[in-house]
Design a binder for these strands. Structure first.
Lengths: 370, 370
DNA sequence: AGGTGGACTGAATCACTGG
DNA sequence: GCCAGTGATTCAGTCCACC
């Protein structure tokens, strides 16, 4: 996939619209490698209605006259294979997918995802704060649903906004279990009769976390089982582009109206915390070249090790010489060492991490981008 | 299966012993329809690649045992099919099975269970109170494992002690997500060198809940992947009979010694490990995810400072960005600041502390406790 | 005895760039 | 594609040494 090809594909994408029709057929019309993220909430009733397609687009003759669980599972598997194959084709090489389901279907779907070449990154449990109780007292309260997050392939460089999710979780790493309330109250869409417009409307909080954590503003997000458009509504709010596919006219109608009322957030609200990894690289030698540190100067570590700076930006200590990282690692007998935080220089008689100097340079770069 | 036949089978069962050998071969020797409950903790097929270091450069002790290594998904599937088939043969018609796994294997196992005719009753999430963090910040903390609870068939009249589980849960219906600590401390078995005797020992609290909830005293409980015998230890304590199967002599030895020290409980029952009850932590980000506050909205302080909410639950004001506490502290030039009482949003034209919203969420949590 | 601080650990599919 | 170099990254809990 060349850049040109990708851009050409993007121009032809039906962004921010809801495609009417069967998701497999509609996905087949879209160009390969054009989507950043997919969120899929496939049906999981095993009494399947309508036609199902295998990956080769042949029809599956679903058995519904006699209850035959094997035939029913086979039909569901064929359906799963076919939509997963199209979904994977549409993803960019570094794209990723989320699929949500319950114990009725998620195991079959997860196995098919692995078979299709998706690389599972996490399974995430949506723990419902207010689930429906089990009235008959014959089982446990079914209080969660399972989401699978997977990269297109094992080598995909998927998007993961680690710091943003950490910020959402009070400064502690986000876990694989998410406690969020189900969708009810004013958020729950109603039809003209006042009945719920869709049986399994997902809460916007769930999509908020998914999109903040695993996509960036401007990304293309596809939802092949669009329903009443939670994915589209949250995507629009968060400055992502969406493509929805939905077969039922009544759902499409509700979704259109819903999304029309959503306002895109302004740019500033969309920016999220980023990790240091995304900052530009600054070679240590630049500190020497700029005169912030002088050749011959001594750097020290917190535990009393010392090394001398050489004119080419390498260090020398005892018998060891090399980069700030290499010398630090050697002195500590460690496999690796972040020299930026390990080494200190003296300012006003106190040891200061050399990382402070790197931060100075980065601040200058932000003020006067080269 | 007649009653006479069942009783005859029971007489020949190797109760409360550990069978040495491959689980499929050993199960073949046992009579069909003779077991009430199976708990299975099969290899997860983790597929780990290189070594992993913590940020402090210490090495993570990975599961690299030969028994967890499979050539391919197909090989793992074949293994799964074969042990599931024997397990199902051994179950009484009203018997049930528990299988535990992680995202690496549980989807494949669950699908094979359905294919074999097992009827899934619940999937249960073991939410680890103290999981290992994600050290590289590349994924979510893998903080849970999944258990599948299934009847031998759709018509099985499985055992479910509804009231006992409700009692274990402070009078509220037991849910499908269980918060329990991992097995460490004194419960974690060590070998002669002081190293862990088994890489994946399960906590007794987990088996306690499983056996209390889905078996009765006197039942026969089979564990085909016995390991160091957590199932046997808890079964003995709770007055169930167990059959263990384990291939590794070292694990069998540890398990024998362990179970020998267990005393059957008389009546002083049920010491379930309970997690500490503190006021639940509510991340500020959750107010944003739930739509109680919107990204882009302005928060104000009593003394006229202002900040804007970002989509990841951080604030931005002038040049400062960070958590509600960090930004508050920065604006005040203070070492710390309680953002919950410092920041206000507007409701009916009046400033209201955001802590009010946190109280709302906590009230909901109290009304529907975990 | 009681409290404190540091070391250690747990089923983990855990990086990316430039030459 | 491979290799070498840089440098980013952790939470809850237990245990032990030491005041």
């Amino acid at each position: 996939m060349t850049k040109t090809k990708t851009q050409a594909a993007a121009r032809t994408l039906p962004l921010n619209t809801i495609l009417a029709g069967d998701c497999v057929e509609e996905m087949r019309k879209l160009p390969e490698g054009s989507v950043d993220l997919i969120f899929a909430d496939p049906p999981y009733n095993l009494q399947l209605k309508g036609t199902l397609h295998r990956p080769d687009n042949s029809m599956v003759d679903a058995v519904d006259d006699a209850w035959d669980s094997f035939a029913s599972f086979a039909a569901y598997d064929a359906f799963t294979e076919s939509w997963l194959a199209e979904a994977r084709r549409l993803l960019k090489p570094d794209g990723a997918i989320w699929v949500i389901g319950s114990y009725h279907n998620i195991f079959r779907v997860g196995a098919k995802m692995q078979d299709a070449g998706f690389w599972i990154l996490n399974d995430v449990v949506w723990r419902k704060a207010n689930p429906m109780p089990n009235f008959r007292g014959k089982r446990l309260t079914n209080a969660h649903e399972t989401m699978i997050w997977a990269g297109k392939s094992e080598t995909s460089k998927y998007t993961f906004n680690y710091e943003a999710l950490k910020a959402l979780n009070e400064g502690v790493q986000m876990r694989s279990d998410w406690v969020l309330p189900i969708c009810n109250g004013g958020e729950r869409l109603k039809d003209a009769n006042g009945d719920k417009a869709h049986p399994t409307q997902k809460p916007e909080s769930l999509l908020h976390r998914v999109l903040i954590g695993t996509s960036n503003p401007g990304d293309v997000v596809l939802d092949p089982f669009f329903g009443t458009g939670t994915t589209g509504a949250v995507a629009k709010m968060l400055g992502r582009d969406f493509i929805g596919i939905e077969r039922e006219p009544s759902y499409r109608k509700v979704a259109e109206a819903r999304i029309a009322t959503v306002r895109r957030l302004e740019k500033e609200a969309l920016q999220v915390s980023t990790s240091r990894r995304a900052e530009p690289r600054v070679p240590f030698g630049q500190l020497v070249e700029r005169g912030m540190l002088r050749p011959g100067e001594i750097l020290t570590s917190a535990n009393g090790k010392a090394a001398k700076i050489r004119a080419d930006g390498t260090l020398i200590a005892d018998e060891t010489r090399g980069s700030i990282h290499q010398v630090g690692a050697a002195l500590e007998g460690a496999p690796s060492c972040n020299g930026w935080t390990y080494w200190h220089f003296r300012r006003d008689g106190k040891p200061v991490p050399i990382d402070v100097l790197r931060q100075q340079i980065r601040a200058e770069m932000r003020a006067r981008p080269s």
